[in-house]
Write a protein that binds this DNA or RNA. Structure first.
Lengths: 104, 104
DNA sequence: CTGACATTTTAATAATTGTTTAACAATGGA
DNA sequence: TCCATTGTTAAACAATTATTAAAATGTCAG
């Protein structure tokens, strides 16, 4: 079970429109991820601002990054998202996890 | 499907240790809810601070409240939580909702 | 090596957030 | 009514956050 402090950190990381959009975009992109510049162009965010948000998401454990030449590729890491959804489902769904289960 | 703006609002509401604790406590308490003062005592939060957090959670649609005599009872409302978990599961789990499904 | 490109960092700033204290309703019992 | 109780609101403040512009870092092509 994830610790509340880590859950709070992950929630805070996603609780911002640009960062939620970044995460969604990278999830859709898959494991290969996407270069920072492409994300910036797609979401129309300045490089500096984007870098700031990447840092927040990465620090929360929601993103992985790898350098490829001059590019830095970011990709969604599902581990924390998984833990977060699990935490919410177990602790925040009235002792009845089914109430918040997807695909009902 | 919940709108991203509402998801962000709900995430932000829960992205704070005291508020996450409040929500968990009220979820555990069930539909009857709990008087503000009891929550304050249980979580050792000052009434004014608690009222501030109640407002944030209520405004995000995560809590309901009813007045009973001098007391105000707050209770978890699962609708938004449900929508939020659904949104995350559908949009943030790699097109593979099962990856974030609870009870794996 | 030099220059252009991709990204991060720093510094400055405005806006938002969380807490405290004190004052303000509202309710119900004596 | 008077008063104690319950909870909210208002004002002030420190701390955090998001954005911008500028400088710095790192990488490769020529």
């Amino acid at each position: 079970m994830m610790k509340p402090a880590q859950v709070v950190k992950a929630l805070a990381a996603l609780a911002q429109p640009t960062r939620l959009a970044i995460y969604r975009l990278l999830v859709a992109r898959g494991p290969e991820g996407m270069a920072a510049g492409q994300v910036a162009e797609k979401l129309k965010v300045s490089p500096a601002t984007l870098s700031f948000h990447f840092k927040t998401l990465s620090h929360a454990g929601l993103l992985d990054s790898r350098q490829d030449g001059r590019f830095v590729y970011y990709a969604a890491n599902f581990t924390v998202m998984n833990g977060m959804v699990g935490y919410l489902t177990e602790n925040c769904c009235g002792g009845n996890p089914a109430a918040c289960k997807p695909g009902k």
